[in-house]
């Protein structure tokens, strides 16, 4: 498992000791990745930037509790997801996340229409959307997703199966095979 490149581990170790320079180097290395993951959640430039900014601050505050340096990227992703969800919630303060249909509501899509995954994930409940983003956009393994979401690997697989079931209506055949 290579959630964090080996050549970055020394920097992670320094960052865990509170070295802000090392932490800054790591963040710079991952900033595009962080932005893209955040954008997948909030689909808005300013909100994605807010999520990245908040993630950077929160992660440094908590970095001494990171127990395994090799999990840095996954751990950072986990914090980013939380930040993105919090910010997304602020834009939709009433509906619980699990029931939110983030962008286009499903009835607006006929079975004939074929979305790509980028659009399709918006119709998923939060937990399914998260596993899809981490698996297919962040390229995480099942084990890494398990760590990022703090759920058992079996649950990750179950969510993936269910998410794929939800997506079946709106994805092209090619994508289904790819999944």
């Amino acid at each position: 498992m290579e959630p964090c490149e080996k050549d970055l581990l020394p920097l992670v170790r320094r960052a865990i000791r509170g070295n802000a320079e090392a932490y800054g180097t790591l963040i710079t290395r991952y900033q595009d990745y962080l932005y893209r993951v955040a954008f997948l959640y909030v689909k808005n430039e300013d909100l994605a930037l807010d999520a990245v900014s908040e993630c950077i601050l929160q992660a440094f505050q908590a970095i001494r509790t990171l127990k395994k340096p090799e999990y840095f990227k996954t751990w950072l992703t986990r914090i980013l997801i939380r930040c993105a969800i919090d910010i997304f919630r602020q834009t939709l303060p009433i509906a619980p996340m699990d029931t939110v249909q983030a962008a286009a509501p499903e009835p607006a899509v006929s079975s004939e229409e074929k979305w790509d995954l980028y659009d399709a994930i918006d119709v998923l409940p939060e937990r399914y959307r998260t596993v899809i983003i981490l698996k297919y956009f962040s390229d995480m393994t099942i084990r890494e997703i398990s760590y990022a979401m703090n759920i058992p690997e079996g649950s990750v697989k179950a969510y993936l199966n269910r998410a794929r079931g939800e997506l079946r209506h709106c994805l092209k055949e090619d994508y289904l095979y790819a999944i």
Binding site: Q31, Y35, L49, V52, Y136, F137
Partner: peptide, 23 residues
């Protein structure tokens, strides 16, 4: 992978945002 994660355009304000947080 048919999904182009790396093609999601990165905000031109990202560098500035990251720098502000690190500062």
């Amino acid at each position: 992978m048919p999904f182009k994660f790396d093609e999601i355009p990165v905000s031109t304000k990202l560098d500035e945002t990251v720098k502000a947080a690190l500062d």
